[in-house]
Design a protein around this nucleic acid. Structure first.
Lengths: 336, 336
DNA sequence: CTGAAAGCGCTAACAA
DNA sequence: TTGTTAGCGCTTTCAG
């Protein structure tokens, strides 16, 4: 069943059917209705590839999500797709594993579908200008900003929180509650990515609060997984690490930290307090509820789409928006 | 940049380039290498729509996921995509919200991309044969099986656990630990879907164990969300519902149940024990760890792909596989 | 307002 | 082993 068959059944030409299909003007009302009726009856759906091929200008954007199981990203996807739809953009979703190269994926997605722009949901900071140039359409980094790879800030856009500052707030909150020995649980202190930035914020907060940072307080677990965080914290505690509060640089890490502490016989928050960053839905159902700095994910998702649309419409590239994370007080921090 | 440009740059014809692109034989080794080199240099990626249009026979399958944020489904997706890739199938992923019509989506996806088959990840049971017929390619329901809508079992395939039996096991386990007042937390006792089936299993287990089912034990919350489960349980307890164990028909529901109970001052498992079904990753990090019947999600994901491949290759439709859920004992059930 | 016809970029016979 | 060519199903001028 093709557009041609529909045209024949309606006694009109293919161009008329095409006009109806694309909601274009210059079709008499009764003709439009008849065509619509036949389309409905036949359950006709146009072949997307053919349309895409014929279209002189596609209005599609791609969304590449890194970390297929990450709830934080999954919670943003539907907002992105919805907003894109509202603004008249078709979307192509590509989920990739943590190990894969999101730039290469994005470049290939853009070419294989004539995309007008790409949103990167999560990714690595450490990119060279050459790598970025592989993607020949505007890019908006959502939840992160490339600041390590020497890519000019004019060559991409971004919307994210200030990672260093947010970590600073998290740790300062802990300090304000009287905590002195505050541990940090992170993948790495220098991964040229979020982990490194949040580590800086931690150090700054500790310093400003007049607290010492010593080795035992830094629990590097290797990656962003809950498994790694769990074993890292457990091992640290078993080896005698001594702290009354822990800052997990993401909610998933913070939740795994709580579990590890609990399994070591520590009560939360009585013995150890914990805070995270992100604000994923699940944190509200943990016992105790996690205190966390909530990223405004709907705002970020919407802005990411709006920014890419703006750039596609011809506005300048290089839009970099910083949004605020807000402290949501749960039950995981002891209030002194 | 098109295949034609590449051909020109290499001094060969488009068909040679096409052959190289598709890993076909009948290209001299040195020619193949030269073409590959130019493709690499130019970062050429063929237009997917054009290829799809020209291909006489596409080998693509679609995956429609219902419940964009559901961790259980998200955890299966990558396995499905991987297996499909291994078997030589292209995949098209479509995530839809809980309110949307997955059959209509699947039908449209199948037509717009000339799909050979569709995997439905989660969905409604209550479908008529007419609705199913909208999808003109083989369908495999993964995690559920259509048994309410009168669709002939020959018209679709499925791979799922035995919902009634799994619920039976969960409740029987609770009873075996000495519990007598066992509540069930579910969306609805008759939603013609998973909830209804698991409710049946609950009733059967209660009966076999010689336990009474009375109204206070049945907490219907309206939908599958954690929010609904949380408020439903909280309200029930505040209204005096009295039970020592609760069966949440899904992990998410069980987790929300634990939280609600905890917020009502009940300790788990000391005051109330809880079990779920699914085995999502997150359950291992809750305090206490949730006892649950684990669905073999990798197995189901792999089988779903293998079954659809089998049907596409010409084998008979109507394959219905039941897989076993396995009890994973956590800390949420009091051991007597 | 409507239709005819020229591609979009690629694959797949078919010839060479 | 390679090239030529006819579409795949649709959109989009351009005439009418």
């Amino acid at each position: 069943m093709t557009i041609k068959d529909i045209a024949a059944k309606c006694g009109v030409s293919v161009s008329t059917v095409s006009r109806v299909l694309n909601n274009q003007p210059y079709v008499k009302q009764d003709v439009r209705e008849k065509v619509l009726k036949v389309i409905e009856e036949e359950h006709f759906v146009p072949h997307e590839g053919a349309a895409s091929l014929a279209r002189t200008q596609e209005d599609s954007i791609g969304v590449v999500i890194r970390g297929i199981k990450n709830p934080f990203f999954n919670e943003m996807v539907s907002t992105i797709l919805k907003r894109a739809h509202e603004l008249g953009y078709n979307t192509y979703l590509q989920q990739i594993r943590v190990g894969e190269d999101e730039i290469a994926e994005a470049a290939s997605l853009a070419k294989s579908h004539k995309l007008k722009g790409v949103i990167l949901l999560g990714g690595n900071f450490d990119r060279t200008p050459e790598e970025m140039k592989q993607i020949d359409v505007p890019v908006v980094c959502c939840t992160f900003s490339n600041i390590f790879g020497g890519v000019s800030s004019k060559d991409f856009s971004s919307v994210c929180i200030d990672d260093e500052d947010t970590a600073y707030k998290a740790v300062t909150y802990l300090a304000s509650q009287g905590h002195k020995k505050i541990a940090i649980v992170l993948p790495s202190v220098e991964d040229k990515s979020i982990s490194e930035l949040r580590y800086k914020g931690y150090c700054k907060a500790m310093e400003k609060s007049g607290l010492d940072v010593y080795d035992d307080l830094i629990i590097s677990t290797g990656d962003y997984s809950m498994e790694a965080a769990y074993s890292g914290v457990k091992e640290a505690v078993e080896n005698g690490a001594d702290f009354t509060a822990a800052f997990g640089i993401s909610d998933l890490i913070a939740l795994a930290t709580m579990k590890a502490l609990s399994d070591c016989g520590k009560k939360i928050p009585e013995d150890v307090s914990v805070v995270g960053i992100d604000g994923i839905d699940m944190t509200s159902y943990f016992i105790p509820t996690l205190t966390t700095l909530v990223q405004p994910r709907d705002l970020m998702a919407n802005r990411a789409v709006e920014i890419i649309a703006q750039i596609i419409e011809g506005e300048e590239n290089g839009v970099h928006e910083i949004v605020d994370a807000e402290l949501r007080i749960g039950e995981s921090v002891r209030i002194l």
